[in-house]
Amino acid sequence: MSKRVDDEIMNEEEPTTKSKTGWSQVTQRHYDPEGNEELTTVIVYAIAEARGVSPIEVKSPPLYEVVDVPAIENTFFGPDVAGESRQSVGTVEFQYTNYLIQVESDGWVQLYESTGTDDPGLD
């Protein structure tokens, strides 16, 4: 579990410990709304890391077919009517193949994989 060093927001919940029943955290990456990388790129890089492949080898299905990532980007990080970044606190989660991906309003992208306890298993 990696530590978040740039998160100084006081939270009731421990922000670094992520656990969900049936899912275990594989990796996390930070999206910077002020940076050059798109949220789509950050998510695909996290998937690639989890799979141990190069990001350009993550092909099928395209994220576009699963969820509208630029819409999430706009929802959390897009400018409001006054031109400033939105203040909402929240999380969007969706599944991509066998992964559960969470995008948090602080820019952290968490990637989980199924622990497989509910799967009958093939071996």
Partner: peptide, 28 residues
């Protein structure tokens, strides 16, 4: 985007754009 000639583009820069084109903009 980086305001550099094409031959100066690094693989990492190119990959990042490729990924966003493939997963978001081209399908759109």
């Amino acid at each position: 985007e980086n305001d550099i000639p094409e031959h100066a583009v690094e693989t990492t820069q190119q990959k990042r754009v490729y990924v966003s084109l493939y997963h978001a903009h081209v399908p759109k």
